[in-house]
Design a protein around this nucleic acid. Structure first.
Lengths: 226, 226
DNA sequence: TCTTAATGTTACAGAAATATTACAAATTAA
DNA sequence: TTAATTTGTAATATTTCTGTAACATTAAGA
């Protein structure tokens, strides 16, 4: 789990391309093919970043931007706009209406990916950080290693993702459903009690002698990293 | 020390992107957003290589090239030019005026990075390592030899490239897909499980009596050089 | 204190991922 | 050309991980 990205773009083939590749990089991605619906879905999805096509059939990019910037919950949502080549005035308008960066079509996926990371690095560093640290716990995403007080800890793939998820938002309590949605691959059906078992396994692995418990149970609500 | 690179390019976002990534790779980077100032700064900075945008607001790429080649101190400074797609004539002019290589926008950073290293390896071998070393493992890219604890090891071509790949980023975990993309020639279709077999062969070759295992399996993620 | 709902713990079978082996086809060397 | 080496794949073995069910424990309100 490296963060959530929402795409509003009417060309299905582009969406598919971006979505597939971003998912391969570990992002959780959702998308919409038109502006109005997109706005609604986006607000439910709560992404860390929005990829916004500037030319949509129903709403213009500017309108979407304005709408988002008016909403106090999304005032600071980073936006990267996708423009066709030559729409120079659009770029200017875009930057004026609070877009963080733009990418000109046709673009290579690598270029887009680099821009996304650059923007996230400014706006929301922990989403793309390589090392996630909380107290004496450290998780390295590139090397896929976890340490507690400098002692390496062996985790299975699911426990790793679970811990990664908690580390991106320490202290925040997540319900079992939220955990399922983000940590488990889409469209997989698992019992919500299964999470208890994984929490147990994670606890067992990261609790080393003499150190305090790091995962807190919040009755009737869920779990959090202390 | 991996050498110094100077960038002359007017799009700030591109400069930022390149600069950040090159610095992450260990290069020392400086840059300028326009041609005239760039030329002055460059001569103070004394880079090992120049990345030059072909379309600048003030000076053309050709003018910059000519200026550099006239200056005896920079006669042989390697130059990679960055051109927009379709500027085919520019490429030709560029190569005529002494450019070493060119990269077409939009480019992926990895592509640029590979070109940079290839040019440096030819022009300034000291700057780019020809020997890749990790612990007691040594690979010589020019002589195509591999040693473990000073004992030469015989590898097939694929295993050699595989090890070379791992050595360029020790400790980093690569997925089978990433390995395929980088180690195998483009547009070759091989099963991703085939990699397991090559990993096995590589392991068998580099694991000598009494020395520790050097390739780590990371379940659900891939492999890494420890 | 008793009751009940929520969470903790354990064990286990099936699933999934990786390791290993053998072999035939392709490539290279002799 | 023949021999030797390398390569990709399929088949099989082995290891590790996952989800669930069953039972245990805990917390909180009546």
């Amino acid at each position: 789990m490296k963060g959530k990205i929402f795409i509003i773009e009417d060309e299905a083939s582009i969406v598919q391309l971006i979505q597939h590749n971003l998912e391969k990089e570990g992002f959780v991605v959702s998308s919409s093919l038109n502006g109005n619906e997109g706005l609604k879905e986006l607000k439910k999805f709560e992404p860390n970043l929005l990829l916004l096509d500037w030319m949509l059939p129903d709403l213009s990019g500017i309108d979407i931007c304005k709408n988002i910037r008016r909403d106090s919950n999304f005032k600071s949502l980073p936006i990267i706009m996708l423009t066709a080549k030559g729409e120079e005035e659009d770029k200017i308008k875009g930057l004026e209406s609070g877009v963080d960066d733009y990418v000109t079509k046709p673009f290579s996926f690598n270029e887009l990916s680099a821009r996304i990371k650059a923007v996230l690095r400014r706006s929301d560093p922990k989403v793309v950080a390589n090392e996630l640290i909380f107290e004496d716990l450290k998780l390295d995403r590139i090397e896929k290693r976890v340490f507690r007080s400098d002692k390496e800890i062996q985790l299975g793939p699911t426990e790793f993702r679970l811990l990664e998820f908690f580390l991106t938002n320490p202290k925040r309590v997540y319900s079992r459903d939220q955990i399922l949605e983000t940590v488990w691959p889409n469209n997989v059906n698992v019992e919500s009690r299964t999470i208890d078992v994984h929490i147990r396994r994670l606890r067992q692995s990261i609790n080393i002698e003499g150190k305090k418990e790091l995962i807190r149970t919040v009755r009737a609500a869920g779990y959090s990293l202390i």
